[in-house]
């Protein structure tokens, strides 16, 4: 299963490190990263593969939500099918 991770918040040191460390620790493989900063606002979209993951989607959502909140970020993890359904025929 592939998931889409979106991270939004004020830019600061260590956001990418925190997210990628968390994913690596749970064997979630990053496939694609797209990140930019507009007016100090951090915006990142990641696509990751959970087929070898040692964590469930629900637990990963909770874990990243908590870690994100601690850094003032909003992190969402969603099954990629919602985006494919809407934008691919």
């Amino acid at each position: 299963m592939k998931v889409v991770i979106t991270i939004i918040g004020q830019d600061r040191v260590g956001i990418v490190a925190m997210v990628s460390t968390t994913l690596a620790a749970n064997s979630v493989n990053i496939l694609d990263i797209n990140q930019n900063i507009v007016n100090g606002f951090f915006n990142m979209v990641m696509i990751a593969d959970m087929s070898g993951a040692t964590i469930t989607l629900k637990d990963l959502q909770q874990l990243l939500k908590e870690k994100g909140q601690a850094m003032g970020l909003e992190i969402k993890v969603q099954h990629e099918d919602i985006f494919k359904a809407m934008h691919r025929i």
Binding site: V4, T6, D32, V45, I47, K76, I82, F83, M86, H87
Partner: peptide
Amino acid sequence: MLSVQDILETNR
């Protein structure tokens, strides 16, 4: 591959 615009549009 999904585009960032598509993903952000859905979430918006």
